[in-house]
Design a binder for these strands. Structure first.
Lengths: 236, 236
DNA sequence: ACCTGAACACCGTTCAAGT
DNA sequence: ACCTGAACACCGTTCAAGT
């Protein structure tokens, strides 16, 4: 501790910078992560950060590395399907603690070694199950961002108004204009008007989509599917 | 034309603002679309834009509306699967002309009426095919951002170096460290070293994933699948 | 009704200087 | 080797004023 009562100045390093950035994003959102605010949080002048990260893009790269490094799937059972499933769900567990991460992952232009290692391990699980490199290649593309444990949520996230009368009126307007949206949004709900936009179990939807994918790949594998001469045709 | 040779000042309106914004994004990328640069492009002072869009977020909303409004699927054949397929591929045709659009769509927090109308029409296609509201609900979640015609590309887009010797060396390093990535990336290629990262046919990958999805949904529908009491289980 | 000008509170990043 | 201070070229947006 310095004699003037200021907080002790631990020497800055890359991990401390990245750790503080992740914490700041978790607490205040990704927009709060500016070089200037991060520096302030670390009790340092903005330019001090540039000794440890080349620029802001590299800061974001490092934040993703810090999150991806935390993916720690349980040991495999020898079944490729379970191995892939476990790895993807482990990625998801990780991401759920960092709501800003999906958006940042999507804006990365370079894959870091840590990111490549996660992809390599996932691919290895397919290949170890006897799937061809060809099928695995296309399966990875089809898996898309789900390999990181997230999916783009497509339904509007507008929270319904608090006032029940107003909510009822809004519901009627939406139902008149977009009847099919309301029909599927309220499927199985007791109170349709209050169910709109609040009825979805994210974890269920994620696993539904993941298993739909795994079922499809498993079937193609069993049939000895090949991409040769199939451009533009159904994979069936 | 004004007498001093300056370009004629057509009266600004919302459509002209949005049109110029889309054109600017198409030509110079989304980062070039700032209120200030857009105003300059329109021969107007930045604050003039605020009469036609409330703020930058609303400008981006309007740009997406302009793109989504252009989705124009061919008339249906009565088959739900073909109807959904045609609509999604039409969305894709549209988006391919606006590379900035996926990122902007992902950052929208409110769905506009135009966006809701596209979703409503897509849902209507499932329901018209006799699929339950329950299955259609989860299918829409699983479809995710593919309903807009794009998928998150997961492979690194780093272009290989021009120098063949350097390229060969880089290939060997990556192959040693991430052997499985290289194995699937070069599946079926004649020259593995030059094929890395350049061998993927985006349109094929998109349709592969779309058809995998459609096959899966079709099968669940045929079996009378229901979500009741199935949380956490495979949809099979 | 529509556009302007000046100002405010922010950004990321450079450069040359300090210790 | 690491941190600082001042400056530059940008942002989105406010407010009060012009026509």
């Amino acid at each position: 501790m310095s004699s003037d009562g200021a907080p002790a100045r631990v020497r800055l390093n890359r991990d401390r910078v990245l750790g503080a950035a992740v914490e700041l994003a978790d607490r205040e959102g990704i927009d709060a992560v500016s070089m200037r605010r991060l520096a302030e949080r670390l009790g340092v002048v903005p330019m001090a950060l540039y000794k440890h990260v080349a620029n802001k893009e590299q800061l974001l790269d490092g934040m993703i590395d810090a999150v991806v490094a935390g993916i720690d799937p349980p040991a495999g059972t020898g079944d490729w399907r379970q191995a892939v499933r476990a790895r993807v769900l482990s990625a998801r567990d990780n991401l759920l603690r960092h709501p800003w991460a999906p958006h940042v992952i999507e804006t990365r232009t370079q894959a870091s070694p840590i990111v490549l290692a996660h992809m390599d391990a996932l691919i290895a699980a397919f290949l170890a199950g006897g799937l061809s490199a060809d099928l695995t290649h296309h399966a990875m593309h089809a898996l898309g961002s789900r390999m990181w444990g997230f999916t783009q949520e497509v339904f509007p996230t507008t929270p319904p108004p608090d006032d029940p009368a107003l909510r009822e009126q809004m519901f009627r307007e939406v139902a008149a204009r977009f009847p099919h949206i309301v029909e599927i949004a309220t499927a199985g709900a007791h109170d349709p008007a209050s169910a709109v936009g609040s009825t979805c179990d994210d974890q269920f939807e994620f696993e539904f989509a993941l298993d739909l994918f795994l079922d499809g790949v498993e079937r193609l594998h069993a049939r000895g599917w090949t991409s040769a001469g199939r451009a533009g045709q159904s994979p069936m």
